[in-house]
């Protein structure tokens, strides 16, 4: 007999529960109890928490916990097709962008690609030290024949970080202007940031086929967009209210204020957000290799799967140096912006 039988009997819910208390063993614990041959009377120590499973034992009308997860799954599968109709065309440009960027960065010969990347580094950071460091990193990776995978990783990061900024900055601006929107979006951002990255992948796999680049693109973007949104919001809220008042007093319109005062003054914070976004997309791109994202992550995954220690370590270190290079470049540009307006 189940512990909660008496509970349902006293409430007079026995009829609702259904009479046939199925004799089939429901759980491992039941089986064990059966095999040990004793229907030992339950002591107080074993008194179960009224969980779904425990209640189900007493009353079969109450679902088991596994029905909950099962229900979630069937529910998701139910709306999957409808969701796909909407999301698929919306995210198609992401697939194209990723495919094309991967193609460009791997098909361009190394003697053209490396100088191009160095020129970009110079334009962003204006620091020869950083350019030298990036050159060293790229040469090092190429020297150990990791050039192509490194380029694939970079291509994915460039596309995803760009889209994060493209979406994240306007969202952050909207948040800074409306306290209500901030109240709604903050828990969403908290969730995106703390949800284990693997969890993003599961519903995405159901939605798209694993061969599509947008599958990992979306996972990376969802994970990495958080800091740029947060810091844009924060940056704009932190702009000196005196300056905003002056802008008002001289009759600036809202857009003059936004583009002429708020965004430029929030730029150091926004750039810090971009830096974090790039770092987080790099972290996610490794995990995303489980769903066919190319690049260094594949090698890390091979290292784990086949216990190839060397392969995993070299690829892992490759990611580290890539991360340091990206961080130095964005920090250099941040320093450049800071230098032009350190005032307070």
């Amino acid at each position: 007999m189940a512990t909660y039988d008496g509970f349902f009997d006293t409430l007079g819910l026995r009829d609702w529960c259904g009479t046939q208390d199925s004799g089939a063993p429901m759980s491992m614990a039941d089986l064990l109890a059966k095999s040990s041959g004793a229907d030992a009377d339950t002591s107080l120590r074993d008194f179960p928490f009224p969980s779904l499973d425990a209640l189900h034992e007493a009353c079969s009308a109450i679902p088991q916990s596994r029905d909950l997860t099962l229900g979630l799954e069937t529910g998701f599968l139910g709306i999957r097709d409808a969701l796909r109709v909407v999301v698929d065309p919306l995210t198609q440009p992401l697939s194209w962008a990723l495919e094309n960027m991967l193609w460009v960065m791997t098909e361009t010969p190394w003697w053209a690609m490396i100088p191009i990347l160095l020129v970009i580094t110079w334009m962003v950071g204006r620091s020869w030290k950083v350019v030298g460091f990036v050159a060293l990193v790229l040469a090092g990776l190429a020297f150990v024949d990791h050039y192509e995978v490194a380029m694939q990783t970079l291509a994915i990061i460039f596309v995803c970080a760009f889209i994060c900024v493209l979406l994240g900055v306007p969202i952050g601006i909207a948040m800074s202007r409306s306290d209500r929107l901030q109240g709604v979006l903050t828990p969403v951002l908290d969730m995106l940031q703390t949800l284990p990255p693997f969890v993003y992948l599961i519903p995405l796999i159901f939605l798209f086929s694993v061969t599509e680049p947008k599958l990992y693109g979306i996972a990376v973007i969802l994970y990495a967009i958080v800091p740029v949104v947060r810091l844009t919001n924060l940056g704009i809220r932190l702009v000196n209210p005196d300056v905003i008042e002056a802008a008002d007093a001289f009759g600036m319109t809202k857009s003059q204020k936004l583009f002429g005062v708020q965004i430029p003054l929030a730029l150091p914070n926004i750039m810090a957000g971009v830096n974090q976004t790039i770092m987080m997309s790099l972290a996610m791109v490794v995990i995303a290799s489980m769903v066919s994202a190319p690049g260094l992550g594949i090698l890390v995954l091979r290292g784990i799967r086949n216990l190839e220690l060397g392969v995993g370590l070299i690829a892992g270190l490759g990611i580290v140096v890539l991360a340091i290079a990206l961080d130095r470049v964005t920090k250099a540009s941040l320093a450049r912006i800071d230098a032009s307006q350190t005032s307070r």
Partner: peptide
Amino acid sequence: MSMVFQNFALLPH
């Protein structure tokens, strides 16, 4: 109508 502020409120950038 123009205004001058106590804390100057110049645009730092």
